[in-house]
Write a protein that binds this DNA or RNA. Structure first.
Length: 414
DNA sequence: ATAGGGTTAG
């Protein structure tokens, strides 16, 4: 149980209640609930839930809806779902709260399932519901559903002035692979905010269109209408990373804090470390990690370890491995990388030592994939799956195709 | 008119 002060919204509410229940109405309770959710750490939604019962507001649908998002924000999806089940008169807002909960818990397919259930229940989506459904489409790559929502919105009036909706639409097309339509929406936009620019820059970057992304970022700065934020710089650095533009990436990383007062986060450093490593600049990557103001995480060190093992730099690999043992000692993949590093450097005895330790652990790495809601698992050199012949055939043709396109690219001098 | 539900990274 947390300690709370006399002035926190819950205590105030209880005080008012004791003074005379008639002084409290639904609005008062709702305001208090919202304040509770905003404090950090947020008040446990179960306490709020109990209080609603005590004050006699437990069946007010607006309050129940607020509790759905409160449970969701406290990482309690099961209780959010249960809360939804308790609502007897569901409207578009309560459905939307649940859809949003699934989106925020990285379950876009479940979000879309609920979106369809809502319509089967004869509840018409409004533009907020459509906006959240679009972000679910973007996250799961559900382009056809996204296009359906676009058509639906056009019939319902377009919502072109709603930047929330417009940005979600533009982002959906970009994430689902249709950068052309995304750019068409961008060029035709009546208004643009940071999110519009950022979604478009990231969209280009994700699809390897580094030049378009960087040109757009220049244009954004020249227009002076919006100020880039941390996410914008993730897009810019991703673009540099895909195009191998080392100098440009370093310049933008410095410009972030110098010109915009944005302290680079781990994801920004991650982009640049990855780029330096893939360009073979391992010493520079290491120096950047050591110079960071924030504590490097396992992903960053693992990037360096992978590069060091690929190039047989066993000294640097050891350095990365040491940090990884502190951060994530149980991660078996790092042993594999380390043994590869020794092998690449010709240090066979050291390689054998690592291998032997791995054998003692005996935990084979396992990959899994979900197809039509059945999960299939594979370990290395697995021959047990009934469709292995078909799968190997597909893999062979993929490998063949990528060899072909590589030949074409090198023929063009790229 | 409408408490409550909203967009950007990997």
């Amino acid at each position: 149980m947390q300690r709370r002060s006399k002035s926190d919204p819950l205590s105030r509410l209880l005080f008012l209640h004791r003074a005379g229940p008639s002084r409290i109405d639904g609005h008062t309770v709702l305001l208090a609930l919202n304040q509770c959710v905003k404090t950090s750490p947020p008040t446990q939604p179960r306490q709020l839930h109990a209080l609603m019962f005590r004050l006699g507001f437990s069946s007010l649908s607006a309050l129940q809806t607020t509790l759905i998002s409160a449970y969701s924000q406290c990482w309690n999806l099961a209780d959010a779902r249960r809360m939804f089940g308790e609502i007897t008169h569901r409207n578009v807002v309560s459905w939307t709260a649940l859809i949003s909960a699934y989106v925020n818990h990285n379950r876009p397919d479940d979000a879309l399932r609920v979106f369809r259930q809502m319509q089967a229940d004869h509840v018409e989506p409004d533009r907020v519901a459509l906006t959240i459904a679009l972000s679910a489409c973007a996250d799961s790559g559900a382009r056809e559903t996204g296009e359906w929502i676009h058509a639906y919105a056009r019939r319902a009036g377009g919502f072109e002035d709603d930047l929330f909706f417009y940005n979600a639409l533009l982002n959906m097309y970009a994430k689902c692979g249709d950068v052309g339509t995304s750019r068409w929406l961008f060029d035709g936009a009546r208004r643009r905010d940071v999110m519009t620019w950022t979604s478009m820059i990231v969209g280009h970057a994700l699809h390897g269109q580094a030049e378009e992304a960087l040109l757009l970022f220049d244009e954004m700065k020249r227009s002076c209408a919006v100020v880039p934020n941390g996410v914008t710089f993730v897009g810019v650095l991703m673009a540099c990373s895909h195009a191998g533009l080392v100098g440009e990436a370093r310049w933008h990383l410095e410009s972030m804090s110098r010109d915009y007062g944005l302290e680079p986060r781990i994801s920004h450093y991650g982009c640049v470390v990855d780029l330096l490593c893939r360009s073979g600049l391992l010493k520079e990557a290491h120096a950047l990690i050591e110079s960071m103001l924030i504590r490097p995480n396992a992903v960053i060190w693992r990037t360096l370890l992978a590069a060091a093992s690929l190039r047989g730099d066993s000294g640097l690999a050891c350095r990365a491995r040491r940090s990884l043992l502190e951060l994530e000692p149980g991660y078996d993949g790092d042993d594999v990388a380390m043994s590869n590093a020794y092998a690449a450097a010709g240090l066979w005895n050291e390689k054998e030592n690592v291998r032997e330790k791995m054998e003692q652990k005996r935990v084979p790495g396992c990959s899994s994939i979900e197809v039509e809601s059945r999960v299939h698992e594979f370990v290395s050199a697995d021959k047990s799956h009934t469709l292995r012949r078909e799968m190997h055939g597909v893999l062979r043709s993929l490998a063949e195709n990528s060899r072909l396109s590589e030949t074409v690219l090198s023929y063009r001098g790229i």
